[in-house]
Design a protein around this nucleic acid. Structure first.
Lengths: 253, 253
DNA sequence: TAGTGGTCTAGACCACCAC
DNA sequence: TGGTGGTCTAGACCACTAC
């Protein structure tokens, strides 16, 4: 028994299950089709429901499945490409963007945000809430933090906190000369409020895109946008998105 | 029982646990410190180990914890900012990049890659394997796909598949005029080979960065890089990364 | 060898949705 | 009201690490 490797590691059951299911999805199911329920699938594969769920969770994480309580598990469509940041920089609220203003409040931001904005930790800033739609589905929820210094004309105003006020704040922002942007992407889990906006459960995996807008030699605004990680592929650069990295994940031999 | 909302939804235990643990991490633990083991933590909070693990998994997903089998659970350092794509485009293998060449093979890529490269689905391409280090830790594993048309001088060569050959392929690539790049980021789970390279278990969450390099009016190379989602924050634009979105996740009140 | 996290089981109950 | 996925339990065994 010294040839190559025979029976090296016992592959975890859920991993093997995931592979089997993945191949079945490619060959036997159409997008939108509903799978047998978890109890039946578990019985069919001869595993406990928890083990089956481990495999389903991974497939959902990879955007292959969509699960909804009370409804069932369906085959997910390919991820939608969502453009994040073109080459030419623009302020949020440009007439052609697909964000919808929800409301606007004046509040003290988290410490990390205050640090990035270079404001005092107890200083209130405008917080504009926006959501982004794509193909009729909500794909992102955003909190746009704007120091009062970036919208001086609105410092004394206490208009009703709504879309109208949000529009006013963004209009003020556009008066400044945008000097540049800065972006970061990381993995996070949806807060309760964002989850609701995104039609997901709290804790769902999201891609957090943090954008700093520079004007007047400082950070004039900070956007924290959370994108649904299961349905979105973030694209950078001018050429929209292309069909890449979906379907069979088999590696070249 | 008709006023506002009283005891609306029973918050899941693991969600509450996560909050409690998160606050404890902020106030009572230092980076690198080791937590009590799972059985003890579960007992201390009066929950089953599986429930406790659900909370730990989320915290690990958010980059707050690091768990290693046989060792224990430690408090993770803040995510490292990793620059992905500067404003001025460059070919892979520039003298100042922090990628390390591992090897190079000639093989048939997955169908999705072949489609992006506009090669036939059974056409072999050069596949350069690279890894990226940051702060002494591996942060990314990459497969760089280069059609033979982009490195014509190497079509007949069958040098030993190693770093030397990888270097030769990249040198050939540099002879072409790079016209532009195109990037996409999405969530994925690590394949077995990538996981090994990244010192993680298979299935670990990763950020998949797909980059297309354009030259001669077509896609001259395609990079699929998988970054550790737990330890990395991908930054775009010229200004490195800044300390944002870490620490207490409390929302402004 | 002792202790850690990783996997797995066989149940139970709950929240949600459609009928 | 019945069926779905979501949560939770109390165990068991395994793989890995460090001593």
């Amino acid at each position: 028994m010294g040839t190559t490797q025979l029976e090296t590691v016992p592959e975890p059951k859920y991993w093997h299950l995931k592979t089997v299911l993945s191949e079945a999805l490619d060959s036997e199911f159409a997008v939108g089709e509903i799978l047998p329920n978890e109890r039946e699938l578990a019985a069919r594969f001869g595993v406990a429901r928890a083990t089956l769920r481990q495999a389903l969770e991974q497939l959902e994480l990879e955007g292959r499945l969509q699960r909804r309580r009370g409804v069932g598990t369906t085959v997910a469509p390919p991820r939608v490409g969502v453009a994040v940041g073109t080459e030419q920089h623009t302020w949020p609220g440009a007439p052609d963007d697909d964000w919808q203003l929800v409301d606007c409040t004046l509040a003290v931001p988290p410490a990390a945000v205050a640090d990035a904005l270079e404001t005092a930790r107890d200083e209130m800033v405008h917080i504009v809430r926006r959501t982004r739609m794509s193909h009729g589905q909500p794909v992102a929820a955003e909190l746009l933090h704007i120091p009062q210094a970036s919208a001086p004309a609105l410092s004394g105003i206490d208009a009703p906190s709504g879309p109208a006020r949000a529009r006013a704040v963004l209009r003020e922002l556009e008066r400044l000369h945008l000097e540049g942007e800065d972006r970061a992407v990381e993995l996070g889990s949806a807060r309760a409020d964002d989850a609701k906006e995104l039609d997901r459960l709290p804790g769902a995996p999201v891609l957090v895109v943090t954008t700093r807008f520079f004007a007047q030699g400082r950070t004039a605004a900070l956007s924290v946008a959370t994108y649904r990680a299961d349905t979105c592929r973030l694209t950078f650069g001018d050429t929209g998105g292309v069909e890449i990295h979906h379907g069979p994940e088999r590696r070249a031999s």
